[in-house]
Design a protein around this nucleic acid. Structure first.
Lengths: 161, 161
DNA sequence: ACAACTGCTTGCAAAATGCATACGGAAAGG
DNA sequence: CCTTTCCGTATGCATTTTGCAAGCAGTTGT
């Protein structure tokens, strides 16, 4: 059942886990958009992910230990998807991806604001963001600083500006 | 001919450029292994890339401005592949990928040594590495520090240790 | 002269992706 | 209640991507 590992190189293994067009998109939406349900991820997907692909990726990411699921107490049919610690530690990777994309791809201004903030904030801001994610997803204590609010405010300001 | 862009998000655009199983593997081998020719990339591939996939990726990466080609003065049939500036600026991204893979995947010890060094070296070491790559690939002046040698020495030591 | 090597292509099978539609059950609105 | 909408998927099917083996015309080393 397990597909064979191509090599023990950490870069290769990261690619074998996350190196497709959708896995990191799903994690990005959960992380930055706080989308916790399947429908939320499906309908508010900026890129228009297909329903079967989304279901498949969620299943694989749970299997790989990057996400966890729990029933939604407020709605018997809903499943809540949460980031596990390995996914939370993708913050620096996603920050670098945003930084690179901002420089070398035709990213739009509004969608680049958050990447810019996260790049300028550096490792200190990433750590604050991860602390906040541990609070939102793992039940850790809430930190003082809300990076998500900082990012969202900047994004909304860019939209209206 | 151009495939349509799915969204202007910098993370998505980075994935559309590099988010497949092989593109970053090819860049990694050129960057860390200094493999500059097609056969070198094909035969010394740790992961066993297929010849048609390699040819396709090299073509796409050149098109995307990440690599450039030049004739090899010493061999009329050989093409030299060089990293362009956008690829050199993937160093921080690859460093983060190595760091994540080292923590959360079953990476082998020997192949993780370089990732560990690059992680511990931090942005300062990344900058030195990029300066060295600009010297090797873009004809810039040679820097004092050779990060490639540091990495290779550590790797060879790990092999024999 | 000849074998080995150069970058790359071709044919073809297998797998992944994309899209529309369907699902049984649960919630929401009248 | 009763109907509509919403829930997280599954299914069928076409298209695209990947993977593997073999081949090719020209160049190089022996």
């Amino acid at each position: 059942m397990d597909k064979p590992i191509r090599s023990g190189c950490p870069i290769n293994l990261t690619l074998e886990t996350l190196g497709d067009r959708w896995s990191l998109i799903v994690i990005r939406d959960i992380m930055f958009g706080n989308r916790r349900h399947y429908r939320d991820l499906l309908n508010n997907s900026e890129e228009g992910i297909a329903s079967n692909i989304l279901a498949d990726r969620l299943r694989k990411l749970v299997e790989a230990g990057l996400l966890s699921t729990s029933p939604d107490p407020a709605h018997k049919q809903k499943t809540v998807y949460s980031l596990a610690e390995p996914a939370i530690q993708l913050v620096p990777l996603l920050a670098q991806m945003g930084a690179w994309g901002r420089r070398f791809t035709p990213a739009t201004r509004e969608l680049s604001i958050r990447a810019q903030l996260l790049e300028e904030g550096g490792p200190q801001m990433w750590a604050a963001f991860m602390a906040e994610l541990r609070s939102l997803h793992l039940g850790a204590e809430a930190p003082d600083r809300s990076v998500i609010r900082e990012l969202t405010d900047a994004y909304l300001a860019a939209l209206s500006g």
